[in-house]
Design a protein around this nucleic acid. Structure first.
Lengths: 325, 325
DNA sequence: GTGAAAGCGCTAACAT
DNA sequence: ATGTTAGCGCTTTCAC
């Protein structure tokens, strides 16, 4: 049998209240009692049952993370950074990889609520906003538009799009193509494309965006990339909305005989640790993952503590200078 | 206030026992009662409290994952695949990124036990084996040596090391260097190096292994890589123990003027999705992440169900043909 | 077919 | 300074 608080009380010769007090450092305890209890705990190798405590306290010290997947340089780093900060703040992490499947996302939302998580950090959003709103739970969104009650942490997507487009134009590109995910997914990431279109027009250039869905498998993406080159043979610059797509574009272009950056200039987006490690040659807009994680965790904890918070926080991006422009 | 089972009972005009029976599909219920209860549940938007259920049932449907970090192509993919399969089997995932910090790993182990997880899948191991053994909990290890009671799932590390070394030798390399993590960390990954040494000796070649610790930051790793080239100027082949190191070696070599694969041949290890996406040119030994995840989850569930399982499962590796040999 | 009551392991009023 | 007792929300035996 597993050791419980009563067993400790018996061995220490005190009541379980006293043991509970020692465990939680609460109330008046004599030194002698404290020692007796600690000895009994060590002797029995007692581990308090967090579930029982959670039931009483109505607080689990659990935070749910709903993200598309952790198998991606950007989300992997983001989740790792969130986890680190939540751990330091005394929270454990329940993970929910939605794979951009609305059904899975909804199941996770329900189960995390059922598991009484103290809060949610959400970077996926394919289901109705209302479901999160009705959760009646502190929620913080990362790069997703939720609703008026849910704070959103974003990097400065518009500035990122502007920087990327200007880098391409300043390095001499004239026929610049942009890639973006489906417009019906309401995410601030589309501001990158908005900026691209604005900057292009300001320079008297024609903007063209090609759809590459985050959810597509590699074959589908590869096909879409191929089409860019057949549809726009004069292309000499591409601003990809993430580094994975940028890498695929680079490879495809190389196979087609383009020299990077002489014939084609490429700017990516995300600039995660892994990308900078595996493909440092790619010039890309770096999202400030650490700062975003810090802001998200700080905001969530403020919400959990019942405080008001900013509803929108935008964090500056940086440029990673590779050799692709 | 949050809705509980008593509220549902009241609205449906039945006892909470009956509501519980409806929720769990247990015992005899009349169609009429079932409908009344479902109506009340819908009306009140009732979500059962999983914590209360867990306390009674002593089963949480939670699995703890202890891994160094999710911000890494290999571990990110592995955790994602584990999560997928655990979700399908009805388990949620509590994540613990140990960052290879023994203290953090121990804290996580304790807290996951305290949270009454039904089982543990472990891919980090810097603390004493006994602590896992004493957990008195179903545990499955991935690529870590635990103890005689804890099943270990590994890819065929020896075969991987053999294949890598043979690829290098067959493509003409004579002065082949290997990289490996610290030997004091007891992991089956060292079999890669054992194979390298055996194959080298079989071919009458001198094996040399350079230490690159997984935990080092990029600067430390870069320094170690630089030293390979100063210490072994005649080097014409490198077998790196993971793709991140291989990428760093590639970059460093290129800066030093080596042409890959003409002057220097490189074989990496892991071959995760992300690597194959960002750096498909790297020839590498692919770990069968999906099969490893399947085996780990299957084995863990068998253990949870009290069944005996194999203590060692080794899964074949594949070669990813890039252009670096 | 349904309900009353006990209990899962813990914490916190309230007593002493 | 420490113990008694009730109760967190649920499931399940036992009774009817």
């Amino acid at each position: 049998m597993v050791v419980k608080i009563d067993d400790v009380a018996k061995v220490a010769g005190v009541s379980k209240t006293t043991v509970s007090r020692v465990l939680n450092n609460r109330g008046y305890l004599s030194e002698k009692t404290i020692k007796k209890v600690h000895d009994a705990i060590d002797y029995l190798n007692y581990q308090p049952n967090a579930v029982a405590r959670q039931l009483y306290k109505k607080e689990t010290k659990l935070v749910g993370l709903i993200f598309p997947t952790v198998d991606n340089p950007f989300f992997g780093e983001l989740v790792a950074e969130l986890e680190k900060r939540l751990f330091d703040a005394g929270f454990k992490v329940l993970i929910g990889n939605s794979m951009n499947d609305p059904e899975k996302e909804e199941t996770y939302l329900k189960e995390l609520i059922s598991n009484q998580v103290d809060g949610l950090i959400v970077g996926a959003q394919n289901i109705g906003i209302d479901e999160y709103h009705n959760a009646n739970l502190p929620v913080v969104a990362i790069d997703r538009v939720m609703n008026e009650d849910i704070p959103v942490i974003s990097s400065d997507n518009y500035m990122g799009g502007k920087l990327a487009t200007e880098l391409l134009i300043n390095s001499g590109a004239k026929h610049i193509i942009n890639t973006d995910g489906p417009r019906n997914l309401e995410t601030p990431a589309h501001r990158r494309r908005d900026a691209y279109e604005d900057v292009m027009k300001d320079h008297g250039l024609d903007p063209h965006t090609c759809l590459i869905d985050f959810n597509w498998d590699m074959d589908q993406k590869a096909k879409a990339v191929q089409e860019i080159f057949t549809e726009y043979p004069e292309v000499d610059g591409i601003f990809a909305t993430n580094d994975i797509d940028a890498a695929l574009i680079w490879q495809t272009a190389t196979k087609l005989g383009y020299k990077i950056p002489d014939d084609l200039k490429i700017v990516g987006y995300d600039g995660s640790n892994t990308t900078r490690m595996l493909l440092p040659e790619l010039t890309t807009i770096q999202q400030p993952v650490e700062e975003m994680a810090t802001a998200a965790v700080k905001t969530l904890i403020q919400r959990i503590d019942g405080k008001k918070t900013d509803l929108e926080q935008t964090i500056p991006v940086k440029v990673w200078q590779g050799q692709s422009i």
